[in-house]
């Protein structure tokens, strides 16, 4: 869903950059698990799966992809797209598969711990507002 179409409540419940930092690679690996894809399609799939909660500056996905390529988590190839232009496709390689498995397991463990300590999450309620304090 494009940003302009989001309601105020949806914008309020989007994840902050700090929360996302370090996890974007895992999200991209998860998207690429289902097959090779390219930058725009990856962003689109991420937004669809995250149902508008995730707000990535779309351009900032490319440094992450390039970094993942340097770390050999993904490999890339230029191919001719249906619009007749060259397009860069990324695919998961064995190191990426392993990293995804590890990250997924770690995230599930963390999620289980957080849920046990904090209790189950309310259904994306707006942030509580406290007078004179920033939350």
């Amino acid at each position: 869903m494009p940003h302009w179409a989001l309601s105020g409540r949806q914008k309020m419940t989007r994840l902050s950059k700090q929360t996302l930092d370090g996890n974007v690679e895992t999200l991209i690996l998860a998207v690429l698990e289902s097959g090779p894809s390219y930058g725009y399609a990856i962003v689109k799939k991420l937004n669809e799966r995250a149902d508008g909660i995730l707000q990535l500056g779309e351009g900032t996905i490319y440094p992450v992809l390039h970094r993942m390529e340097e770390k050999k988590l993904v490999a890339s190839r230029w191919r001719l797209a249906e619009n007749g232009r060259q397009r860069k496709y990324y695919r998961l390689v064995s190191k990426g598969h392993k990293a995804l498995a590890v990250n997924r397991w770690q995230w599930q463990m963390l999620s289980a711990v957080m849920e046990k300590v904090l209790g189950s999450a309310p259904n994306f309620l707006p942030k509580p507002q406290v007078k004179g304090a920033t939350i």
Binding site: R85, Q86, R87
Partner: peptide, 10 residues
């Protein structure tokens, strides 16, 4: 070229 492809399609 990669960014241009993204922006065109978007």
């Amino acid at each position: 070229a990669e960014l241009e492809d993204h922006l065109r399609q978007k």
